[in-house]
Design a protein around this nucleic acid. Structure first.
Length: 420
RNA sequence: GCCGAGGUGGCCUAGCCCGGUAAGGCGCAAGCCUGGAAAGCUUGUGUCCGCAAGGACUCGUGAGUUCAAAUCUCACCCUCGGCGCCA
């Protein structure tokens, strides 16, 4: 959520930002209108309450008719206050709803563009693997080796769910453990959180209300299946105030993520876009003065996994039109999958500035006596499992249909070198 | 799920029965004092409206009663203890 004061003072800057991000200006105008009316009424309400407070001090001292007279007057004032406050609350709800739908302001270093094509390649690493045979696609490999079962996944739950079996399941577990161990070495504290969260949490990180149709919701308990570990991990510190020396805080968490992918056509066969997937996440709470440096560190910490796995990848700086709602700057890491000859987004690393912190009220005290300020939050995948699995399977496939297990994963698979 | 106790400012605690608009302590900071420090004293310490003066709000959340609610009523949430159920 943006600072409402910032919107009031710089409406034209916000207008330009909305257009750069492919959002309409309507929300801004709606905000300005509601806010002005809200401020007018809150002021009137405050004046009446002041009047009432003065009378309340007097009443116990008064007697007889005079007392009755003042009480009578206050009765009318009380009714007026009640009436105005109802309108104020109503305006406030509407206004907050509008503000919650205004995206974060991109950093100056973010290129302006309207979609994927506007993104910039920042760097690339490794070279695309070439084969002396026709490489298979990951779902062909998965079925041929009997390590991924789509049919039975659909049977027990529905389409978009899959089962990992045998060495497939073991490879997944090895990847998770490898990632967590690397991040542990990089100084992240490992966290394991609930996978189901309340509305305040999805509001805190910005998925609610904008993305609510993309999340699974448990109606009876009004709880949500987390769409990313970013939600529980960031909201851990909701309504908290850190001391300056506690920052930065770095967490890594392994957790399944759930996405309804509402309205998307199932154009991707296999496990590239599924409803439930594992992900190792990186989350940081940092001082505002260092957040963009911290984004570079976060990104390289995520890249270390791809380097360790020796997968070719490239790093993209997203443009204004392609960035997520809450982000001020985002890098995507794309691993190359030679089977389908495509770049797969395996990680998205973002700096959210104070956007999430303001929603979730995560603050720090710059100096012991000074007023608390919002921290900056960052997060990135380190990495998303299914797509990493796709990249591993397609890059490490052999002519005979077997898979060579990446060297860094072998210790997690009892030294096994081949999946056959 | 049931019974009991509780939720008060950055932290700890009083007030609640009996309604009059949050007392005290700790921490932290500034000022006074001092050669310097400690102690002591004074002030400050959250959110919102306002250029400011000033004002409003804040006692887990929401509603209700009342001129007036931390205090009374109702519903809900969370924490702790006991019982029940359970991998």
């Amino acid at each position: 959520m943006l600072d409402v004061d910032l919107i009031r003072r710089n409406p034209e800057m916000i207008r330009v930002m909305l257009l750069n991000r492919n959002y309409t200006e309507e929300t801004l105008d709606e905000f300005l209108r509601l806010d002005e009316e809200w401020r007018r009424l809150i002021d009137e309400s405050n004046r009446l309450k002041h009047q009432r407070n003065i009378a309340s001090e007097q009443i116990p001292k008064l007697k007889g008719d005079e007392k009755k007279k003042v009480i009578g007057e206050m009765k009318a004032v009380a009714e007026r206050i009640k009436h105005i406050d109802t309108t104020v609350a109503d305006l406030e709800t509407k206004r907050d709803e509008v503000v919650l739908n205004i995206p974060n302001i991109p950093d100056d270093s973010v290129p302006i563009g309207c979609d994927y094509d506007g993104n910039c390649i920042v760097s690339s690493s490794g070279s695309i693997r070439e084969f002396n045979f026709t490489p298979k696609k990951h779902y062909e490999i998965g079925e041929d080796l009997d390590i991924i079962d789509f049919q039975r996944g659909a049977k027990i739950t529905g389409s978009g769910f899959y089962i990992l079996k045998g060495d497939g399941a073991r490879l997944e577990r090895a990847l998770i453990q490898y990632m967590l161990d690397v991040h542990h070495e990089q100084g992240y504290t490992e966290i394991f959180t609930p996978a189901i969260v309340n509305t305040a949490s999805v509001m805190g990180t910005g998925q609610y209300p904008k993305m609510k149709d993309d999340m699974y919701w448990c109606e009876r308990d009004d709880l949500w299946l987390n769409p990313t570990a970013e939600v529980p991990v960031t909201n851990m510190h909701k309504d908290e105030i850190f001391e300056r020396e506690q920052l930065p805080i770095s967490y890594t968490a392994y957790l399944p993520s759930f996405r309804r992918e509402a309205g998307r056509s199932a154009d991707t066969r296999g496990i590239i876009r599924v409803h439930q997937f594992n992900k190792v996440e990186l989350v940081k709470f940092v001082h505002p003065s260092t957040s963009y440096q911290d984004l570079e560190t976060l990104r390289s910490d995520a890249e270390a996994i791809l380097q360790g796995l020796e997968l070719p990848y490239r790093t993209m700086l997203l443009c204004t039109g392609d960035m997520g709602f809450a982000s001020a700057k985002t890098y995507d890491l794309e691993a190359h999958a030679p089977g389908a000859s495509q770049w797969l987004e395996v990680s998205s690393c973002s700096c959210f500035t104070d956007f999430q912190a303001r929603r979730a009220r995560v603050k720090f005290r710059p100096e012991p006596h000074l007023k608390s300020e919002f921290v900056h939050t960052l997060n990135g995948s380190g990495l998303a499992l299914p797509r990493t699995m796709v990249a591993v399977l397609e890059n490490y496939q052999n002519k005979d249909g077997t898979i060579t297990i990446p060297a860094v994963l072998r210790p997690y698979m009892k030294g096994q070198e081949i999946i056959s």
